[in-house]
C-alpha cells in the first residue's frame, strides 16, 4: 500500500468517525443527562435527511435548506419530548426502550405515508459534487472534506457551549447529579427540552450530511444508531468529549479493519474493540458519573 493510499484511508477513517460523532453527540447528551435511552434518535436522523432533501428540492438553496431542516428537526424533537418522552424519565430503561422502539416503527410508517417507499434524491450542488487533489495521486471527494469541517466545527461549538457557558454548566450539573442540580435552582425541565431539541438537531444534521453520500430511505437511521450506541458506550455515557474520541477511534479502526482483515472479521472488529475497552474501563473512556 503506497503512501497516498494509506493517507486516503486514514482520512476516510477520520471522516467516517466525524460522521459518527455528529450522530452520537446528541445521543450521549440525552442518554447522559436525562438518563433516557432514545432509540428513536435514528428516526430523527432520517427525518433530518428527508426534510433537507425536500426543502432543497423546493428551494434549490443548499445551505439554507440544511439550516431550516435542522431547526425543524429540533422542533420535532422538542414536541416529542414535551408530549411523550418526558413521561418516561423516571421509568425503567426497558420501558424507554419499548416506547422509543415503537416510535421507530411509527416514524418509519409516517415517512412511508408522506414520501412513499422509494428512497428520495438528495443531490449535491456542483460546488461540492466533485473531488479535489490533496496531493499527487490522492483525489478526495469535496463533500467528504465538508463533512470533516462541519464535524470539527460542531465538536468545537459543543466544547465551548458545554465547558464555557452557563447553560453548559447547568447541563454538566444535570448530567452528573440531577437531584442536586434541581435543588440548586437549575430549571431542569427547560434544560431537558433544550438538550433534547439540540440532540435532535444534531441527529438531523448527521442525517442530512450523510444524505448526499448514502441512500435517503426509510429505516436509514437504524444501522447508524447501532454504531452510535457503540460510540456512546465506549466514550462514556453523557460525555461529549468521550463521544468525539470514541467516534474517531471507531471510524479509523472500522476503516482499517475493512481493508486489512477478511470480511467476516472486518465487520466484527469494532465490537471486539468495544468489548475490550469495556472490560478494561466498564464505564467507558471518559465517564461523567464519577
Amino acid at each position: 500500500m503506497g503512501l497516498p493510499l494509506l493517507l486516503e484511508q486514514a482520512i476516510n477513517g477520520v471522516q467516517f468517525g466525524v460522521m459518527l460523532f455528529l450522530m452520537s453527540a446528541g445521543l450521549t447528551l440525552v442518554f447522559g443527562i436525562m438518563n433516557l435511552i432514545n432509540l428513536a434518535h435514528g428516526s430523527l436522523y432520517m427525518i433530518g435527511a428527508y426534510l433537507a432533501a425536500t426543502l432543497y428540492q423546493m428551494t434549490g438553496q443548499f445551505v439554507l435548506s440544511f439550516l431550516a431542516a435542522m431547526l425543524l428537526t429540533a422542533l420535532v424533537g422538542a414536541v416529542l419530548e414535551r408530549l411523550l418522552l418526558r413521561r418516561f424519565y423516571d421509568r425503567s430503561h426497558l420501558d424507554q426502550v419499548l416506547v422509543t422502539f415503537g416510535l421507530i416503527l411509527v416514524f418509519n410508517d409516517l415517512v412511508r405515508m408522506l414520501w412513499g417507499p422509494v428512497s428520495v434524491p438528495l443531490p449535491l450542488p456542483s460546488l461540492l459534487a466533485g473531488s479535489v487533489q490533496l496531493m499527487p495521486g490522492l483525489q478526495y471527494p469535496t463533500f467528504r472534506l465538508a463533512i470533516l469541517a462541519v464535524g470539527v466545527l460542531v465538536a468545537g461549538g459543543l466544547y465551548v457551549l458545554i465547558s464555557h457557558t452557563r447553560v453548559g454548566m447547568w447541563v454538566r450539573a444535570g448530567a452528573s447529579d440531577r437531584p442536586m442540580a434541581s435543588a440548586m435552582g437549575v430549571n431542569v425541565e427547560t434544560i431537558f427540552v433544550l438538550v433534547f431539541a439540540l440532540g435532535a438537531a444534531l441527529a438531523g444534521l448527521a442525517g442530512m450530511m450523510a444524505g448526499p453520500i448514502t441512500a435517503v430511505q426509510i429505516g436509514m437511521g437504524e444501522p447508524v444508531l447501532i454504531l452510535a450506541l457503540v460510540v456512546t458506550v465506549i466514550g462514556g455515557i453523557g460525555s461529549v468529549r468521550g463521544a468525539f474520541v470514541a467516534a474517531l477511534l471507531i471510524g479509523v479502526v472500522d476503516t482499517l479493519g475493512r481493508i486489512l482483515l477478511p470480511p467476516a472479521l472486518g465487520s466484527m472488529v469494532i465490537f471486539i474493540l468495544m468489548a475490550t475497552i469495556l472490560a478494561w474501563r466498564p464505564k467507558g473512556l471518559f465517564s461523567v458519573h464519577g
Partner: peptide, 20 residues
C-alpha cells in the same frame, strides 16, 4: 473480489482500494 457487510453505509475504503 470484495464482499462487504450487508447494509454497509460507507464504501470509501473499498473504493480507494479499487482505484489503486
Amino acid at each position: 473480489e470484495v464482499y462487504t457487510a450487508f447494509g454497509q453505509l460507507d464504501y470509501a475504503a473499498e473504493i480507494a482500494q479499487l482505484r489503486a
